[in-house]
């Protein structure tokens, strides 16, 4: 244990924490600007097993920030090359490299073999896939992301409420600016990747204070930080294999949508059905929804309801799949549930 003596003498650490690191398996997805520093600190801290997933090859423009790689590595796969470098840092850490991109087909299988997942990727589609699989498999997720001289790090422990990325931004943001356009500085990514590594170590060694269900915003120009609590936004989200999601609202949440100028409430029952509702809405029976699609305002959040929540669920899928609506949800349990709660 001579190798780790400087950290085991730390308060609240000791051999016990070191043993926890040795017994843990961490998956780092993305061996880029965040992944490189994060991996170095994880390996040197004595984590027992580390998986690295990255299908990308090293490009000359990566070298100013992806500090595991050198000029001689240009053209090599990032995961494989990272593994070679990391083996030298601490040969006892078992390193598995996956020279592939994570996708819908391989995500569950790869993630299921690890205890903690660190998201060091750089696009929302992949980030949401990782998030959703971690929710499904209850795997703690350490999220990190960069924008110019700012960054975000969040820890989702995936315990009881399974608070996750979708509780901040329910659907993948559209305006994502990638580092190709926004620019990125290695030293900034180094800070963020190190924070991700640190939070991973804190989580594994069960340190009392970590960014649990919080997101840290960090501006390294002004050294301004805000630490924001994340609460459950949508307690009930069904994740479909297609990557789409169905948002089920409970009655309390549904009430928040009534008389909300940003929301269009749609009753998909037939005109003759009872009970009549006591709030303003538009009635478009489900069989006529397609032909009346022009009545819906895509700029607004669409909230659908029916008698017990079956037709409204069908309507959500129709709007998402065929008409590409982004902000759609429905009342789980329908008006029956709504009136039973009054």
């Amino acid at each position: 244990m001579q190798r780790f003596i400087r950290q085991t003498i730390l308060p609240n650490f000791g051999n016990e924490a070191q043993q926890k690191l040795l017994n843990s398996k961490v998956l780092v997805i993305g061996a880029g600007g965040l992944g490189c520093p994060c991996l170095q600190y994880l390996v040197s801290s004595g984590i027992g097993e580390i998986g690295i997933v990255d299908g990308d090859n090293i490009d000359i423009s990566n070298l100013q920030r992806q500090i595991l790689f050198t000029t001689n590595d240009i053209g090599k796969n990032k995961a494989a090359s990272a593994k070679d470098k990391l083996n030298d840092i601490h040969p006892s850490t078992k390193i598995n490299s996956f020279p592939i991109f994570i996708d819908e087909k391989n995500a569950s299988e790869i993630i299921s073999k690890y205890d903690v997942v660190v998201d060091c990727t750089d696009d929302f589609k992949t980030r949401y896939l990782i998030n959703d699989v971690c929710v499904e498999l209850s795997k703690p997720l350490i999220f990190g992301a960069n924008y110019q001289f700012e960054g975000q790090v969040a820890v989702f422990k995936m315990d009881d409420l399974k608070i996750n990325l979708r509780d901040i931004f329910p659907t993948p943001p559209k305006q994502a600016i990638r580092c190709e356009e926004a620019g990125a500085l290695g030293a900034v990514l180094g800070i963020l990747g190190s924070v991700q590594a640190l939070e991973t170590i804190k989580l594994i060694t069960k340190q009392e204070d970590c960014l649990h269900n919080e997101i840290l915003y960090l501006n390294v120009i002004k050294y301004e930080t805000v630490k924001i609590k994340i609460t459950k936004k949508m307690p009930d989200i069904r994740y479909l294999m297609s990557g789409k999601t169905i948002i089920n609202l409970n009655v309390e949440e549904f009430k928040g949508k009534i008389n909300n100028p940003l929301v269009q409430l749609i009753d998909v029952r037939n005109e003759t059905e009872l009970p009549k509702v006591d709030f303003e809405c538009i009635q478009i029976p489900l069989p006529t929804l397609k032909e009346n699609i022009h009545l819906l305002n895509k700029e607004k959040e669409i909230v659908l309801f029916c008698h017990v929540g079956i037709r409204s669920l069908e309507a959500v899928e129709l709007l998402q799949d065929e008409f590409d609506f982004q902000k759609v949800s429905h009342l789980k349990g329908g008006v029956v549930k709504y009136f039973s709660m009054k």
Partner: peptide, 10 residues
């Protein structure tokens, strides 16, 4: 009050 946009860079 703070306005927090999503980041994706990595």
């Amino acid at each position: 009050i703070a306005l927090l946009p999503p980041f994706s860079g990595g």
